[in-house]
Simulated scan of single mutants.
Amino acid sequence: MTFTGGNPQEEPPRRVAKKSKKRFLWLALVTLLALIAVVLSVLYDRGEFDGLRRRLLYTKAQKDENGCAQLYRYASDQSGSFASLDGSLVSVSMHQVSVLDETGKTVYEQTVKFQSPALVRGAFRAAAYDVGGTSVYVLTAKGLACQVDTSGEILAVALNKDGYLTVTSNESGCKAAVRVYDASGQPVFAYRSADRFIMTAALSDDSRTLAAVTMGQSSGVFTSYVVFYRINSESALTTTALTGSLIYDLIPMGSRFCAVMEEQLCFLDDSGEVRAAYSCGSDYLRRVDCGDGYAALLLGRYRNGTQHRLVTVDSDGQVMASLDVDGEVLSMSAAGRYIAVLFSDRMVIYDKTLAECARLDAVSEARQVLMRADGSAVLAGSTAASLYLP
């Protein structure tokens, strides 16, 4: 090979120039990727990314003039409850458990004889059961994942983000029992209470810590106790006493649990320490649901009436936003960054700062709203459910 223009060992600038050009191209590429990341972040913060995602996912959906797509039809049953899972609709009633996909096709159906049908939702699963019954149907968007049968009457059921199932039931030989099942329906932990009744229980999002709510009295004062267990140990980790009213629900929120009480929310870590609390003050707690890292509360100004206050609270007990609303509230649902409130005459979607994102006035047939993390919402009525696409 012949070199021209000098000795290549003494004059290598042309080779250096090529390397410099490559460095410039890499720098330009990194800058472009960083710019794209910033733009996507801004769009995500504004909720516009969710709108783009909805348009891509539901391009074929036939919408009416209100922006609703009629997707699901089912037999009329006033006892029905619903959950939205990855585009599918799960329903449970006194007579049937079913799953309908986005095309309205029935992908799972089971005839039941429930007296008090109940339905709870996790991140990607739902669990249908009868309060006082002995069977739990764990469902996904594609149908039945597993069925769990218990030896005692079921009191409460919960699902965590990993799909682990927690069942609280009455069992002979103890006041009550809590059993934890993995995503395949196999038992992984059991806690039997010999001295106190168990109201409800929940498993942490990392599937390591069980928290169970028991009742008792301390110095003549009614007290709720939260007992903590690591599911790899048979010994209780700790017990936390919360005086005052009942704990109605226990919701895992990241590394913490949110204990819902009549007059406040208490946030406990997985070692049993109360890390924060939010007081409802003189307001009456009507409804509560949790999105990503926050709780949404509907508070009543008076014991009866339509004057309410909508509040979002983070896991540190700090108020993120507060908004006065007026109207009869039929249903409230939170998912991702969004909260949907179904009034008797309208449905409004807010973000977690309680800025209004969308509003729908044609809701006379709806009795339950199911918020989706992408900003869409399912409106379920007595015989059909529609998907609202803002």
Rank of each mutant, 00 (worst) to 15 (best):
L250P: 09
T111I: 12
S219F: 03
A34Q: 01
D326L: 11
L57A: 06
K60H: 14
N160W: 06
K21Q: 15
L242T: 08
D64L: 02
V226A: 01
L71W: 14
G317F: 06
L35F: 10
A211L: 02
L165V: 01
V107M: 09
S20Q: 08
V378E: 00
Q78I: 15
S382A: 11
S193A: 05
L119W: 02
D149Y: 06
Y74N: 06
Y248S: 13
V319T: 15
L40P: 00
Y229I: 09
L330K: 14
Y72W: 15
L310V: 10
S279K: 13
A334M: 05
T312P: 00
M320D: 03
V39I: 02
K113C: 05
R286P: 00
T59R: 08
Y302Q: 13
L342C: 03
D324H: 13
R337C: 04
L159A: 03
I36Q: 12
Y164W: 15
G272F: 06
I339L: 15
I349V: 15
D326M: 09
E65F: 01
Q96G: 02
A276N: 08
S79Y: 13
A28D: 02
M371H: 05
E65M: 02
A176I: 10
T223Y: 08
S193P: 01
L119A: 09
V319I: 11
Y294A: 03
D195E: 04
V39W: 12
F189H: 06
G185L: 14
E10K: 12
D77S: 15
F82E: 07
Y44G: 03
K113L: 09
L210K: 02
M253P: 04
C146E: 11
T134L: 00
G293H: 06
N7R: 10
V42M: 04
D351T: 13
Q110K: 15
S207F: 10
G67S: 12
K22C: 04
R367F: 14
V38S: 08
L299E: 01
S235M: 10
G67P: 08
R301Y: 14
G47E: 03
A37G: 11
V90G: 07
T223E: 07
S81W: 12
R54N: 09
G133S: 14
S219H: 03
L285K: 05
A384P: 05
D361Y: 15
D326V: 12
V92L: 04
L299P: 00
V112W: 04
L71A: 12
G327M: 07
T243P: 03
V288E: 03
M347G: 12
R196D: 03
G327H: 09
G336E: 07
M215R: 10
T140C: 01
Y72A: 09
L155M: 11
Q307S: 09
S218Q: 15
M320T: 05
T306P: 00
R256C: 07
L29Y: 14
C174F: 02
D345I: 00
L27D: 01
A190H: 09
T238L: 00
L52K: 08
L119F: 06
L139V: 03
S135M: 11
D182Q: 11
A17M: 07
P8Y: 14
E356D: 02
A194E: 12
A276M: 05
E65A: 10
I247P: 00
Y284C: 05
R286N: 04
T140D: 07
K105L: 14
D351I: 11
R372A: 12
L360H: 01
